[in-house]
Design a protein around this nucleic acid. Sequence first.
DNA 1: TTGTAAGCGTTATCAA
DNA 2: TTGATAACGCTTACAA
Lengths: 348, 348
Amino acid sequence: MVTRNDVAKHAGVSVAVVSYVINNKNNVKESTRRRVLQSIKELGYNPNLAARSLKTKRTNQFGVLFNNLGNPFETGISLGLEAKAREYGQSLIFQTFVREEEEKLKTIFMGRTDGLILLGQSFQPETVEYFDRLGIPIISITSPVEAHPSVKIVDIDWHQAMLDILKHLQQNGHRKVGFIGSRMRDHHLHYRYQQFLRAVKDTGMEFQEDWLLLADGRLETAYMEMSGKLDSSSRLPFSAIVCANDLMAIGVLSACKDKGTNVPEELSIIGCENILMASHTTPAVTTIHYPRRLIGFTAIECMMKAVDKESTKPEGATLAYHLEVRDSSGRRQGDFSGLVRKPPFLNL
Amino acid sequence: MVTRNDVAKHAGVSVAVVSYVINNKNNVKESTRRRVLQSIKELGYNPNLAARSLKTKRTNQFGVLFNNLGNPFETGISLGLEAKAREYGQSLIFQTFVREEEEKLKTIFMGRTDGLILLGQSFQPETVEYFDRLGIPIISITSPVEAHPSVKIVDIDWHQAMLDILKHLQQNGHRKVGFIGSRMRDHHLHYRYQQFLRAVKDTGMEFQEDWLLLADGRLETAYMEMSGKLDSSSRLPFSAIVCANDLMAIGVLSACKDKGTNVPEELSIIGCENILMASHTTPAVTTIHYPRRLIGFTAIECMMKAVDKESTKPEGATLAYHLEVRDSSGRRQGDFSGLVRKPPFLNL
DNA sequence: TTGTAAGCGTTATCAA
DNA sequence: TTGATAACGCTTACAA
C-alpha cells in the first residue's frame, strides 16, 4: 500500500505538507502543492480512511437500519439516501435490524459511523441514550411506535393521510371499513393503524376489532390472511379495506381475485406508499403516495446538520403526500362506472 | 468515549491484557479474564473498529456496488448478501455504481473494505488491477459484459437459460422471436442478449436485428418502447418476445394491455429473474427463476474464502435456475387454453 | 511556508 | 500469565 510517507519522500517534503495538500489547507506554496499532487498521482496514493477516522473522529459513514431490504418502500427510500449521501461524500452501511441483536449494534458501529438512520424501528431507550452519549445522532424515517425525544423523525402526516383515505371512501358511499396491519405491535406499520383508528373516530366511520386483519407487511401473508377471511365469511362485513402498505393491498387484491370477489364493486381496497407495483395490478391500487426519494434526501440533509456540531439542534421534518386515486376503490354499490387506467409511466 | 485504556485501569491490568481478553487469546488467567469482562460491561466498552482496522489491515467490511437499488433483482440479491455477511460478522457498504466516478471508488474504499462485490458492472481493467494489487478481491454477481480474469463470477448459466426459453417457445409453435434488452452495451443485461443470440443460433429460431427493442432495464422505458412498436406496426413481426428482465417484461405486458394486444394469444412474453411482481400481473409472467438469495449467500462464501489468504485461490460459482412457466406464454395460434394461475405465495 | 512530533485506539512482539 | 512498547497511517498544534 502506498502511504502518505511514500508520497512525502517522493515529493521531497514532510508528511505534514502532504496532509496540507490533501486537506486543501491554503498554506502551501503553489509549486510545492503541484509537486505533491504530482507525486500522489504518480504513486497512485489514496489516504487510508481508517487512519483518518481514528484521528479525526469522523467516519463519513452513516448506518442505515432496514427491516426488510426486499421491501420496495424501504429500497425506494434508500435510493434517496444513497444519492444524497453520495453528494455529500458520505458512505452508507446497510444492516438489517434484528431486534434480538440490537445490543450488537453498539459493537458493529463503534468507530464506524457518524449517525444512524432507522426505518421505523423502535430502539430501546437505553440504546438511544448510548449513541446519544457518543454524539451519534439518530434519525428515524417513518414514525416508530415508540418515539424517543432524541430520535428525530422524517415522515409524512399519517393521521392526515388516513383522514384523506376515509373521506375518499365516505364520499363514495362507504361506511364500514376494515384494516389490514402488522401483527407486531412494535412495527412501524402499527403506527399507521393507530392513526387509522384516530381517523375513524374523527370521520365517524365504522370499524370493529374483528375487521382487523393481521399480517407481517408482506404480500404473501396478506394474501393468506385475506383468503382465510373470504373463506370463513359468506359476506364481508365491510365494503372497503385500508391496508397499511401496498404490498398487503396487493395480497388482498390477489386473494379477492382468486376467491371471486370483485374489486372495487364488492370491496374497495386502498393501500399506502404507492410502490411501483401498485400501479400495475388490475385493477390498479388506490394509495397514499409516499415521497420516498425526497424523504431519503431530507433525512440525509437532517443528518448532515446533526453531525455538524456547530449548527443548531437537529430537527426532523414532515413532508407532503397525496392520495393517488386509482381503480381499486370506487362507489360502494353496483353503480361503479369504470375509471380510465392511468398509464403506468406517470407513476414514479 | 470509553477506551481500552479506561478498561485496563478499571480492571487493574495492562492494556495488553484487555486486548487478549477481547480477542479470546487463551493465555489469560480465568480470574483476570472475568475481572476484565466485568469492567468492560460496567463501563460499556466497545472496541473502536477504525483503530482495529488500522492495525490489523482487516476492516470486516465489504463494498457492494449497485446499478439501481430500486431494482428488486438487485435488492433480492443484497438480501442474501446481507444475511450471510451478518452471519460472518461482516458489514456491507452499499454504493450505487456510477461509471464516471469509477475512479473515486479507490478513494472511497481505501482502508474501508476487504473485498468488493459488483452487480454485473464492467470495471476498467486498470481499476481491477489496482484493487488486485491491494489484495482486495472482486466478485461479480451476474456476468459482466467484459470480464477480467481476476474478477470471480457468481451467476447462473444464461446460455442454457436462453436455450430453455427458446425450446419452450418452440414447443409452443413459435418460430419468430423478438427481444428487449439494454441500450447500454456495457450493461450486464447485454450479456443476456449475447447469450440469447447464441441460443437463437443453436435452436434455429428466427430473430432479426430490428426485432430488438432497447430500453434501460426499467419498466417505464420498456412500456414506452413497446407502445411505440405497437403503434408503428400494424402487426407484430414476431409471436413471442424474450425480455432481458422481468421489469421490462411487465412494461411490455402493460403496453400490450393498453394497446389491445392479447397476451399470450397474440404475443407470448417471457421475462428473466422471477421477481415477485412477475407472478402478480395478469397474466402472470413466464420467467427464468434466478436464485437471488442463494446467489447472495454464495457470493459472500466466495468472498470469505478469497479474503482468507491461507485458503486456496478464490473461485466463482454457477448456480441452478429453472424456467417458471406461467400464463404470459402459450401456443402461437388461437388454440391457447387458459392455464390455471398459481397462487402467489408459492413464488418466493 | 514547511517540518517536528504528539496522539488517535488498537494489535502484537518481546521481555519479564 | 502479564506488561512495556513499537507500530498502523493519519491530522494538527507548534516550532522553525
